[in-house]
Amino acid sequence: MGNVTLVIDGREVSVPKDFNIIEAAKRVGIDIPALCYDPNLEIVGACRLCLVEVEGWNKPVTACSTRVQEGMTVYTETEQLIGLRREILQLLLDNHPNDCLTCQKAGECLLQEYAYRYDVKFREHDGDRRRALVDTSSPYILKDDSKCVLCGKCVRICYQVQDRQVLSFGGRGFDTKIVVDADLAFEESSCVSCNRCVTVCPVGALVDKRVLGKARPWDGDIKGVKCKACDYGCNFEVLSKNGKNIAVRARSPLKGRPLCLKGRLMTEFIYLDEPEVPYRKEDTQFVETTWEEALGLEGVLMKLSKDE
């Protein structure tokens, strides 16, 4: 694959010609805001935050979906672009609860980060708002529609595994939301609690319920570990606070790695000082179970062998 050379914000960069502007910009350390782009997922161009200007083109284009071209001159932070981004962010905040104080996502939330970067604030208004439909039915995932920015990453990543494909868009226009199967609660759905969706959510709309209230990203340590339950070796993070391992959460699965509940529980069982009780799904209900049942005998043995 040949390379092309372009100039982004005055910096020259040479990248393979199938790169998009957003990837090329990253090469020279320019971070273009993006809520819906993920290098591992299909490109959809939905959030419109990554708009950039290209010299000679009559309209801004999305950096996530526009291929680089030889000799292209790109600007990523012009006055016009900043104006558009601020207005788009304001539209998102106008339809978002002012909950950063207690939100599990605070500190890692992209909406929070961009609002800070472009100085956009929550404000009072008497217009319509997305309804706060909170799904607490799963012991593994908390879904809060009022915080969803409809980037669709969760839908795309769930869709990547053949027999999952649980999430989709429901409704339309202002009433669009992410639905689980035919708009069921997690508990009643075919969701396998792999938490793939949670790992890509840029905001606090999908969070890991077993981490909830235990620690925030800045007040503990995070260590990456590999799952030992099968050959895929999916990535997890162990969160610790005051020298104690308190929670495990899945890391964004790269292509080909499925993530699964068993692996997650196994990782919890191996690393956590006081793992919470595991749950398994029985028809349309989550029920408490034992570690033996959740992991099988070998799983328990593995832990014992580690302890030794």
Partner: peptide
């Protein structure tokens, strides 16, 4: 338009409503 917006992108979904 507000009724018919598909809801995919932010400016149209949120902006036309406002």
């Amino acid at each position: 338009t507000v009724d018919e917006s598909c809801g995919k992108c932010t400016p149209c979904r949120e902006g036309t409503k406002r």
